[in-house]
Amino acid sequence: MLNHVSQQFGLQVLSVNEVDDSHSSTVYKCTLVNGETVYLKIPFTKLKFKRELEAYEILKGSVSIPTLLDFWSGDEECPGAFLLSELKGTPLTSKDTPAVAYQVGVLQAKMHSIRPAAGQVLTGIKNEFPNWSTFVEQQFYSFAEDVRDILDEQLYNKAIEKYEEMKQQLPSPDGPSFVHMDFRPANIIVNNNKVSGMIDFESVRFGSTEIDFTKLYRDFLSFDVSLYNAYQEGYKSIRPLIDLEKVLPFYRFTDAFNSIGWCKRRGIEKNALFLEENLTRLKEWLL
């Protein structure tokens, strides 16, 4: 597949490395004969390809993202592929500074400031905002089919009860905004204490901003209150921030639950560590 796609773009490749921590596509970092570094990205499905393609057009000029150098719409063997420029740097970590956390807040708020354009026809990215609670519920109960096979019956029933109870306490949704749906450190690139931008748009929607804080909090903001405070300051410098204390408990709970279902779908053995982390999180909420 790699050779097949490389030929479509006419690349003269010197070396190739597959990128880790990419869960909805196969990504290769390619060093070309002329010394340039580019990325080849092959989404798992045609829908993910369409979403990503539309995202580059929507985000271009508003938010820092890789440059879309070229794309191929695929064939019977391949759902499509992208040729992308390199964002200099490495993924965000909990060791990064409050100054970086502030910039992450600015980046996310700029993305959330993007609203659906009147008359724009999209075939990949859906506007879920008008039926937001239904969208969240469908995701939860879809994963519940998989979670049922992992949890004992008593714990599973407690989780369902907890979900039904917590959803009643949510405020009105905030949007419609462009939401990443996978806004986590692995998808935020930092170079020399500056945020270079963000990557990976296979899961994007128009929806409520409330869903987009969970993974960032789980994997970055929760480690240090100074990061959390600086991030909020950065976000608020661009647009109002919803009351995270009201929405984070619900979305942290559903993230742990849905992630258990995700591990079942993607393979329990190869995702054993992530599964264990989320089982621990879920039990903390329920027990």
Score class of each variant (00 low, 15 high):
L2S: 02
G10A: 03
L14S: 12
S15N: 14
S15F: 08
N17T: 14
V19Y: 13
S24M: 00
S25L: 00
S25N: 09
C30P: 12
L32C: 08
L32K: 11
L32N: 03
L32T: 15
N34L: 05
N34C: 03
T37V: 10
V38I: 12
L40C: 04
L47I: 14
F49G: 07
R51H: 04
R51I: 08
E52W: 08
E52L: 09
L53A: 09
E54W: 13
A55V: 12
Y56R: 09
E57D: 15
S62P: 07
S62Q: 14
S64E: 08
I65C: 05
P66H: 11
T67R: 03
T67E: 11
S73Y: 10
G74V: 15
G74C: 11
G74D: 11
L84Y: 01
S85Q: 01
L87F: 14
K88S: 06
T90W: 04
P91S: 07
P98W: 04
A99G: 10
A101V: 11
V104D: 01
V106Q: 10
H112P: 04
I114K: 08
I114A: 05
R115D: 05
G119M: 07
G119H: 11
G119K: 02
V121T: 14
I125C: 02
I125F: 08
E128H: 07
N131K: 06
W132Y: 08
S133E: 10
S133K: 12
T134L: 06
Q138P: 04
F140Q: 07
Y141V: 05
S142W: 13
F143K: 10
A144P: 08
A144N: 05
A144T: 06
D149W: 03
L151M: 03
D152Q: 05
E153K: 11
Q154V: 12
L155W: 06
Y156A: 01
E161S: 12
Y163T: 02
Y163W: 05
Y163M: 03
E165L: 02
M166H: 11
Q168F: 02
Q168P: 07
L170F: 12
P171A: 00
S172W: 02
D174Y: 00
R184E: 05
P185A: 01
N187P: 09
I189C: 06
I189W: 13
N191D: 15
N191S: 12
N193C: 04
N193T: 01
K194P: 10
K194L: 01
G197D: 11
G197Y: 14
G197K: 15
I199F: 07
F201E: 04
E202I: 10
E202P: 14
R205P: 10
F206W: 12
I211K: 09
F213I: 09
T214R: 06
T214F: 01
Y217K: 12
Y217T: 05
Y217S: 04
D219L: 03
S222D: 03
F223D: 13
L227Q: 15
G234S: 08
I238E: 03
I238G: 00
R239Y: 00
P240S: 04
L241P: 00
D243Y: 05
K246V: 02
V247A: 05
V247P: 14
F250T: 06
F253K: 08
A256I: 05
F257E: 04
S259V: 04
S259Y: 07
S259W: 08
W262G: 04
C263M: 00
R265S: 00
R265W: 03
N271C: 01
F274I: 13
E277L: 07
E277T: 06
E277K: 07
N278A: 00
R281H: 15
K283T: 14
W285N: 06
